[in-house]
Design a binder for these strands. Structure first.
Lengths: 360, 360
DNA sequence: AAGGGAGTGGAAACCGGTGTCAAGAGCTTC
DNA sequence: GAAGCTCTTGACACCGGTTTCCACTCCCTT
């Protein structure tokens, strides 16, 4: 029996090795186990960094893994773990540059970790929104999800995630959840810095264009601006606050409304760069020169801020770093540095669209 | 024996049902089989649309599936199928709006199909580029990949994909591969339409700014323009062609170079909207009014085309539809209409940045 | 009525990993 | 020197599907 089985077995081995060596087949955990002369369970232990493996054995197995370029199959592993190695980004955000930068950041944070990013744009106002999100997560058994604004600000989503026990990170401008679930963007500080810049230049009658009220950042940016005014003993005149929608067109309209006021504001702070670009347009139509006749500033420091004339003084948001921190927090990577929280604080970028007001 | 087993079995059933009904557990194929009174193989046949199931049986099973909201586990299915239900988008493209629109289109094409989109930005010039791509595909056992420009134009990638037997669709402005692997964007036709527009307005001395030479679209757009000129008996003066890089800054520089020529061109056709925005800037600096003194046109019809002054006459590229067609072709969906090939042909959008040249 | 083919459904193995649990090795301890 | 302990290791079942193989039912020939 034994004697007839051994040659059989080695014949099988030879076949298996041939297929492997020729590259016709990827290595499996069984191959590695066979080549290292251990059981597949022990290989599994090495992969999962179990401490119950003798150092010598571990090194032998790791050598074989390195030699044959083995990587465990995420599907099989996921099946056994009852979850996948996919991270979902669920978003409802109109700004392509934000979305792309965020994706890049998220990928930065998971590079080399074996996780992959699955994107899921959605419509928060759809009647099937929550059901869609739930299906997406449960079907794919997502490891976790990242929620940028405005999805991050939707408590229904957070409740759902807690309910189904899915890991999540919310990216928002204010803490909305326990610290372990939040990456806070501090838009307020950025807006405050901008406010100080404007006040420092000598502006006192400053128009403000808010963003979409459905985004928390709109309120934070306005709040930060008010903080800066208050610190200088000034107050935001409600008459000089106009509602915008984070779009170029809304900025144009709001800009025209503000420029029609008497007395005219000497500066306009738009809630984002797109709207600031609209204000530049409005100023041009009104025959005003920026920054001589009017200071115009934005927020975000996206590409458009440098693609208009004059280039916009704005607040830089380190979107990519924010994304990176989000995934790192989600997968709680040991190797990686925890990431400096200060690195995600927005900062002022002074360009050519801001200057001191003309002396009266 | 039988009598002692039956109660046992039904007790198990009761337990299983309890867990199911309480929502503590998702339905598995075994649950559906049990509830429908068939074997799981038969359920599997229904899911995979095998013809060898009696109509009556199929309906009964489908009813149970609908009632319990069963969806097969993609990991388990993928493990057995030896591939996943993930589609990769591998791209190296600097334009966020293109990327986001393309993603939206790809998702449009796979909605409700059970596939998910995994994004994979990359750097084509990295020394590990091909290895990265290979690893990405093989580890995840991707169902297939979508390649937008400029990755689509890289023959090394195509060779790799053929080599490892991965399904793929290349999106490019010219046919680079067999029809079944291509979605052709016809940038040439769009550029030709723009050329006709300019010639029709009466322009004869037209500057052209090319895009990155590493993108096929750069050459196609120039080629289409030349086609239109040739049809009108004109020729593109090489002296009025400047190399750009698809960025605002490069458009600004190229615009300044073109405006310095004597005689000055009466129109400038930039290879994309970003560069056209740069040209607008250059014109402004040169004290020229658009379109009275100079016609400026772009290509792509991205957001920036409407966020500058004057709004750009440009060529609209239906990126999202292109993406949708790409995934539909990849997964070869029966239910879906094949998609009208005409719907992805670019078309001219006339706005305010183009006008007839001033009479001499 | 027996033979044969097509249509239908089940048992068991398999995809490539993981959890559970018990057994073997090597070392103390009394 | 046997019991008792910890440290390693492997056998086996399992995750939730699919595929292979086979048996059974029908139904139509001859």
């Amino acid at each position: 029996m034994t004697s007839s089985k051994t040659p059989n077995k080695s014949a099988d081995d030879t076949d298996a090795n041939a297929a492997l060596e020729s590259g016709r087949r990827r290595a499996t955990i069984n191959d590695i186990a066979r080549l290292a002369g251990v059981s597949k369970k022990t290989v599994s232990r090495v992969i999962n960094q179990s401490p119950f493996v003798r150092e010598e054995t571990r090194q032998r197995i790791e050598a074989v893994i390195a030699e044959w370029g083995y990587a465990p199959d995420p599907q099989a592993r996921g099946l056994a773990f009852r979850r996948s190695f996919l991270i979902g980004m669920i978003y409802d955000n109109p700004n392509p540059q934000y979305v792309v930068n965020m994706q890049l950041g998220l990928l930065d944070g998971m590079r080399g970790s074996g996780f992959e990013l699955v994107v899921h744009p959605c419509d928060r106002s759809s009647p099937t929104f929550l059901q869609d999100v739930r299906m997406f997560i449960e079907r794919q058994k997502l490891f976790g999800v990242i929620l940028p604004p405005s999805v991050s600000e939707d408590e229904r989503v957070a409740d759902l995630l807690r309910d189904i026990g899915c890991e999540y990170i919310r990216i928002a401008s204010v803490p909305l959840d326990e610290e372990e679930h939040m990456i806070v963007g501090h838009d307020r500080l950025g807006a405050q810095a901008m406010g100080e810049h404007l006040v420092g230049l000598g502006h006192q009658r400053i128009g403000f264009i808010t963003g979409l009220p459905s985004f928390r950042s709109s309120h934070e940016r306005k709040g930060g601006f008010e903080d800066a005014l208050a610190a200088a003993g000034l107050k935001l005149d409600a008459d000089y606050v106009v509602q915008g929608a984070y779009t170029f067109e809304s900025g144009l309209a709001a800009g025209e409304a503000l420029l029609a006021k008497t007395p005219r504001p000497t500066a306009i702070f738009a809630g984002n760069d797109e709207m600031a670009a609209g204000v530049l347009q409005a100023a041009r139509r009104a025959g005003l020169t920026v920054p001589e006749d009017l200071t115009v500033v934005g927020f975000d420091d996206f590409q458009i801020a440098q693609a208009v004339w004059p280039p916009l003084t704005t607040v830089h948001i380190p979107t990519r770093q924010v994304g990176r921190m989000a995934t790192e927090k989600l997968i709680a990577r040991e190797g990686h540095e925890p990431g400096d929280p200060a690195s995600i604080i927005p900062h002022l970028v002074v360009r050519e669209s801001s200057a001191a007001p003309k002396p009266v």
